[in-house]
Amino acid sequence: MLFSASPSPSLARIASQSEDFCVRRSSRLVHGSSRRISSRRRSITVASVNISVDDVAQVFENKVLISAALACSIGQLSKPFTSALSGNGLDLGAVIRSGGMPSTHSAGVMAATTCLGLERGFSDPIFGVSAIFALFVMYDAQGVRREVGRHAKNLNKMAMLKRERSRVFQEKTNLVGNYARSASPSLESVDGADQEQLTIDEIGFNRLEESVGHTEVQVIAGAILGFLVSFGVELLLS
């Protein structure tokens, strides 16, 4: 009697599963080695990057940087003239100071934001991030920084009054001392408890900068300046 030599279904299933496992194992090893080789190639490529003059020159083709820098430059250079128009005289030092008309911070961020919108589209997420950043900067310019300028102005007034009172008190003390010495030559000096107090000059108080923030009009003027500059740069470089 002859028996069939064909394998059972369970043995065939086990053999098939082991074969699939070996294939998957070998494919994983191949993919892992290829990823390691590609990562090594990327690291070698990054380590051997050479920055040429042409790469640096491309910075000057960036419309966002050009618009922001040009808007800030125009804003700062126009401050002495706007100071003269407001009746404060031609203040050349305003070129290197913050505050004044127009707001350079507002001009720079608005120019960058507008240029990003024109370049990438107003639905681009990067434009949205830049617009939020611009709103924060402009709000801070007429909010927190403006209050800092007000505090500095009040502190300067208090220091000036304190200095004037110290000078008057010193003159009165010297006058009383001279009169006492002339009336009684044996009296050497007149020392008061207030003479031992430190004056403003002895403390080393320096006048604080009052022109730090901006008014709402200055912020709006800076934003309009940045908007117009970005449009001009876009038209010239497009």
Rank of each mutant, 00 (worst) to 15 (best):
S16H: 06
V190S: 05
S186C: 06
R207F: 09
N178I: 03
V168D: 07
R24D: 13
D194Y: 14
L70H: 05
T173N: 00
L135M: 13
L161Y: 11
E216Q: 10
I44F: 12
L198Q: 14
R35V: 08
R25M: 15
G108H: 00
I132P: 06
A134F: 00
G108W: 00
T173S: 09
V23R: 02
S83G: 08
I14S: 02
A223Y: 03
N154C: 12
A152I: 02
R167N: 07
S83Y: 08
R163C: 05
F227C: 08
L65S: 07
N206C: 08
S83T: 07
M158F: 07
G32L: 12
A183D: 03
I51S: 06
Q142S: 10
G87L: 00
L135V: 10
M101S: 08
Y179G: 01
V168G: 07
K79V: 03
P102H: 00
R165N: 09
E234K: 02
E147I: 06
H105A: 07
G75R: 04
M1S: 08
R167F: 14
V137K: 03
R35C: 14
P125Y: 00
V176N: 03
S67T: 10
S98K: 02
Q170A: 15
V46D: 10
A193C: 10
E234F: 04
A71H: 03
S33H: 11
L11H: 06
H214L: 00
A15V: 05
V56T: 03
S8N: 14
S98F: 02
M1E: 12
A159L: 01
I203C: 10
I220V: 03
C115A: 12
P102N: 00
N174D: 15
V219G: 05
S238R: 09
L198W: 10
R42Q: 13
V168Q: 12
A193H: 09
F60A: 05
V46K: 15
L92S: 12
